[in-house]
Design a protein around this nucleic acid. Structure first.
Lengths: 219, 219
DNA sequence: GGTAGCATAAAACAAACGTTTAAACAGGGG
DNA sequence: CCCCTGTTTAAACGTTTGTTTTATGCTACC
């Protein structure tokens, strides 16, 4: 074993790679970021990535998993707590549980958390197979649990309609979190509080709970 | 001049490149799609891209512009027509004008239109500078016009709140259009009518008009 | 104190990348 | 007819890509 305690394997090198990769992925995207950019910036050897993660894709997987696993675990826990508190949580309460987990991550002292939310928005629309698989895997339980909760809170809503609305919800959240660069698309709109995730989460909850509770269309 | 009529420049080669590039960009993303993949698939020479578009980025620009310019022109025209019809269009009417332009594109006989909507969802979160600039440029007028229209239809909504809600709206629409692959993230949810953009647009209008008209949060 | 075993280091690998070159080809007007 | 212009072709350009290899350093254990 090296500098660390046995069994751990929490090498500085590994973490430095993940930190730098996360940041560069946000700025430049997955496939446009080369291993040489990452390793140079992280001041580690080029071969370190393949040594520690097997391949570039293995590292991408780890970058996503590192933040996404705790985030979605937190979301499930928050829903657990909510359902333990009341038998029939409202749409607004469920939404708040889902979103506030992300807000908590954005204040993570490890600091990468805030950046990661921006990466997450992009990961939702990534064509890369590794990314898609990781997203499906990490969102599987969360999606199932929240779907059941929303279904109970919105009993009059047809199943297919709920699924669609949840997709709209995921889209709005991912896009909102993805953040500041894209925001400027609505040009000439100077947007305040771009990085105030608390205010953002408030606005999102209001917007989305109204959308989810919209009257059932008569089709 | 070659096979075509003079002055036109509507070369088969150019169009074949754009068609294939559009499809491959949807499947694999911008930077993961090489010129060799495109030119091989389009059965044209490798150098044709640099000859006709100057560079790969020049071609990307053209791929976006070709569909986005007519789409957003249509959106502005639809809003013009709406405002000519009534002095105070409702939120729902404005939304319908914006979205139905995309639905119309999805039925374009040139057939690429439907694919392009999926590409569009990704383009909103692309870090590539050329893509970002092109999106800003193409959305500039549309965003300004619709912002003014929504502001008139929602006079009680603070300016900043409206801008945020429009961002949520853009996100939900882009994400919804981006489509089927990502849809499967909410696993174990077999989703019907994935490519029925008419039904999708109906659902989107209901969801978003409720969100946009949500009660103003007391902050 | 030597010997495992993990981690780092520098160098090389073949393959793929976007781009450029220079030659061949096509058709229309002088 | 030949030249001119716009297009296509094949080949090569120099970089950069992810990955592998080989050698070295370091720590813990017997």
């Amino acid at each position: 074993m090296a500098a660390e305690v046995a069994g751990g394997g929490s090498h500085v090198t590994k973490q430095r790679i993940l930190d730098v990769a996360e940041r560069l992925f946000v700025e430049r995207g997955f496939s446009s970021t080369s291993l040489r950019m990452i390793t140079t910036d992280a001041e580690v050897n080029l071969a370190a990535v393949n040594y520690h993660f097997g391949s570039k894709e293995g590292m991408i997987e780890e970058v996503l998993k590192r933040r996404l696993a705790p985030l979605n675990r937190e979301r499930v826990v928050a829903l657990d707590a909510l359902e333990a508190l009341s038998v029939a949580p409202t749409v607004q309460e469920i939404l708040k549980a889902y979103i506030s987990a992300a807000v908590k991550l954005s204040r993570d002292p490890a600091a990468g958390g805030f950046l990661f939310l921006r990466l997450l928005g992009r990961a939702f629309t990534e064509p890369n197979e590794i990314v898609k698989r990781q997203m499906q895997q990490q969102y599987d339980e969360v999606a199932r649990r929240y779907r059941r909760a929303f279904a109970k809170a919105l009993p009059q809503l047809p199943e297919q309609e709920l699924i669609w609305r949840m997709h709209f919800m995921f889209g709005a959240i991912a896009y909102a979190m993805a953040g500041s660069d894209i925001m400027q698309i609505v040009a000439s709109c100077e947007l305040k509080d771009v990085n105030d995730f608390n205010a953002l989460s408030e606005r999102l909850v209001h917007f989305l709970s109204a959308g989810l509770q919209a009257p059932v269309p008569t089709v």
